[in-house]
Amino acid sequence: MEIMRLVVTGPVGAGKSTFIRTISEIEVVDTDRRATDETADLKSSTTVAFDFGRLQFGPDTALHLYGTPGQARFDFMWDILIRKAHAYIMLVAAHRPHEFRYSRRMLAFMRQRSDAPVILGLTHMDLDKAWSQKDILLALGYVKGSQQPPVIVVNPTDQQSTTRAILTLVQYYFTILQAAPHPQVYEASQPCS
């Protein structure tokens, strides 16, 4: 069985659990608990370990999707999940600018632990208060001249939209893999001397 592991991350309420529930073909393994912190203003339950979903597309091939908790107190779960991820998508709610700095910190955390390719998924772009894509990238610290990740607008409740987001992520992983062969592959082809 060959498996590709993708991680869905982002601040509380960005739509991570919903995203995985929408795209998964199996009933999602969730670890939701009733929220008692400030998360409760946003939604009634919150992920405390991870969400797990799966897409099997061949007899021996499957895509595994892991959703992280949003709150920083679960950063050990971020750590566990990101290390095994082949690629990840960071969901950011476009209409909640107060979370941009937090998202920036989350990205720094992930980047420090993993060189896996990342794309940004912007949710809630249809709301009046939503910031434009360009401005969100800027607020996340992607200034002119810095390398920007692919960005996709996504509706976590919509099956086609989440599928497109995953496709974008896999395609991006593919181009990165093409551009720079993985070090492990490179080492394997070296003759022993």
């Binding site: 393994v29 670890t31 608990r33 405390v48 370990a49 908790p69 107190r73 679960f74 050990f76 779960m77």
Partner: peptide, 17 residues
């Protein structure tokens, strides 16, 4: 304290699963 609490919750939820 916060970290210990978060870890406990994660562990228990996985255990229950």
């Amino acid at each position: 304290e916060e970290r210990v609490s978060a870890m406990s919750a994660a562990m228990l939820s996985l255990g229950e699963r």
